[in-house]
Amino acid sequence: MKRVVVALIPYLWLLGLFLVPFAIVLKISLSDVAMARPPYLPQFSWSEGISTFLSQLDFENFTFLTTDDLYWKAYLSSLQIAATSTLLTLLIGYPIAYAMARAPEQWRAILMMLVILPFWTSFLIRVYSWMGILSQEGYLNQLLLGLGVISEPLIILNTKIAVYIGIVYTYIPFMILPIYAALHRLDNSLIEAAEDLGCSRAKAFWLVTVPLSRNGIIAGCFLVFIPTLGEFVIPSLLGGSGTLMIGKVLWEEFFNNRDWPVASAVAVVLVLILIIPIVLFQQNQQKQQEAEN
């Protein structure tokens, strides 16, 4: 009996504060905007009955999302930014993880801590720290102008490039850790065996190291890609008005336009898009667990 209670409290909590709210989002996404409080119709009322209520729901908002090119452009641009920055994070994170796995045993704990440490500092502050660096009169431009590399300040802040930098910077630990875990387990004699059988260093890396760290790479990519897709803080601080990302669109739709039904519809579509990488990620994790057992 007590065991049931143990499970019941968190179960009910999540039902009430996760599932029900999401059902509400779904419902509102099928409602119409209204000049009222709350600003949507229909309102559910017992007197009118369920069927009347249901008959008033429609897919109008979703149709709207396809007609106004702001939305599908924002989705595409989010996907493109998430994909590009995931790739960049991989390209920068892999050599770091590789060097960590190759470092002397006694360094590794410290290196690990140095990678994890930024996790504990405020995300907002980490993003903010780049504003001073990338702005037109920022430290990077000062340095490059001072060195005579450029004669005109570069415009980086409020462009996609700044968003890429921000994403790589904040999400790189998610990439490094799983790749490091995979490389750390890699038996060095496998590399030696490949060299012994005629591989050059580079060839042994491609034929042995990369395939054997594949699971780490995949996990790292998903861990960066999934949260980036709905990212809000980075595009709004570093991306400027020109950078479209769906998280930002949803925020503006809700707070600035107060169009709750459309904001809800945007959210529902975003969840639908996210389901694909999440399921793939789950499968990868499961396969990896099975391979380990």
Binding site: I24, V25, I226, G230
Partner: peptide, 22 residues
């Protein structure tokens, strides 16, 4: 329900909870 919030974009979690509270 335990794992979903880990991957749910914050904007959606925030929006849905707000709608609940209202």
């Amino acid at each position: 329900m335990i794992y979903a919030p880990l991957v749910m974009p914050e904007v959606i979690t925030g929006l849905s909870l707000l709608l609940l509270f209202i």
